[in-house]
């Protein structure tokens, strides 16, 4: 960035202050001066993260009424409730940067904002609940732990809160698969099918290799992002290896290998065409997910308005002088 003759001294002071905070690995807070691009990138990232949590409620809510026991219904309800909560923490964090909740809601509903590709798949079986908890939440945890140290204070703090809650999600999924894998041959097959369908999409959650990821370099420089997409993905697949063994299930990646030199696991070829199709809105459930969100928003409007009207009437009543 070049400093032109028209740059205000205050702008320059702000930039220097900002740079010093980032350099010292400290946190930027809502009232700090920040580059406009930093603000916009964070608004985009945090709001899209929030949208992902809210949309992510749908594939799992699909199984609440059919979870095979009262306890499992209660557990799945608690998980979905957590996802709603995560979305709300993140909307609150995004709002500290100046965008309103209404604007973010409209961006999502009108298809102007993205959310994680992973939630555009269907959940046809109970085993999908296991695969999602184990693989999707597992991948999310891998991504989210480093974000606890993101340079923007409210985002990092929201991530700390989210990470505390996320580990129950992964264990819940793992237990579902464990139960099925040690059940009848049909149950074990259902578990394997679900894992076969969710494994590659879970790896795609980390995003493309960084050379194909345009925002990565700037995100790293601003210390929003701490590790590359490939680093996180390889870390995740390495953690899954012993977990596959414990489950007694096969890993769908037949080309997965351990690289002695780097000490990391290397995945087989990932089908990025599938990922790009989903980003383009051509995934199995893209239309359904957005339609459901829009319908929920529209059909809930009367509730929001009634509550606001009630509150207004109560305030008016409180201001009336009490008749003697």
């Amino acid at each position: 960035m070049s400093i032109t003759a028209t740059t205000e001294p205050a702008e320059q002071a702000g930039q220097e202050h900002f740079d010093a905070i980032i350099e010292a690995d400290q946190r930027i807070e809502p009232r700090d001066w920040m580059p406009e691009k930093y603000r916009r990138t964070l608004i985009r990232q945090i709001s899209q993260h929030a949208h992902s949590e809210i949309i992510g409620m749908q594939p799992e809510a699909n199984w609440i009424t059919r979870a095979p026991s009262l306890k499992r219904k209660a557990i799945l309800t608690a998980k979905v409730q957590d996802e709603a909560g995560h979305g709300l923490y993140l909307y609150a964090a995004a709002q500290t940067l100046g965008i309103t909740r209404d604007e973010m809601t409209m961006q999502l509903i009108e298809g102007r904002a993205r959310y994680s590709s992973i939630f555009n798949y269907h959940t046809p079986t109970w085993a999908d609940m296991g695969a999602i908890g184990w693989l999707v939440d597992g991948a999310a945890i891998c991504n989210q732990v480093p974000l606890c140290r993101a340079s923007y204070g409210p985002y990092g703090r929201a991530m700390v809160r989210i990470c505390k809650e996320e580990s129950f999600h992964q264990r819940q999924g793992f237990e579902i698969l464990m139960e099925l894998s040690n059940g009848t041959p049909e149950q074990k097959q259902m578990a394997q099918d679900a894992v076969d369908r969710w494994y590659w999409p879970a790896l795609m959650m980390f995003g493309p290799s960084d050379e194909h990821s345009p925002n990565s370099a700037q995100s790293m420089a601003w210390k929003i992002k701490r590790f590359s997409n490939d680093e996180l993905r390889n870390r995740f697949v390495g953690m899954c290896v012993p977990q596959f063994e414990a489950l007694g299930l096969e890993c769908p990646d037949k080309d997965l290998r351990f690289d002695e030199e780097t000490g990391t696991w290397i995945t087989g070829e990932i089908d990025w065409d599938e990922f790009n199709a989903i980003l383009d809105g051509r995934g199995p459930a893209n239309t359904q997910r957005l339609r459901h969100r829009r319908e929920a928003h529209e059909s809930g409007a009367w509730v929001r308005e009634a509550a606001a009207e009630y509150a207004r009437k109560q305030r008016e009543r409180d201001q009336q002088p009490i008749a003697a």
């Binding site: 809502p30 709002q95 500290t96 309103t100 909740r101 209404d102 929001r304 308005e305 606001a308």
Partner: peptide, 13 residues
């Protein structure tokens, strides 16, 4: 207040 227009149906707390 950042994140609020002041004209939302439900205000920010």
């Amino acid at each position: 207040t950042p994140g609020e227009t002041g004209t939302e149906t439900w205000p920010l707390w």
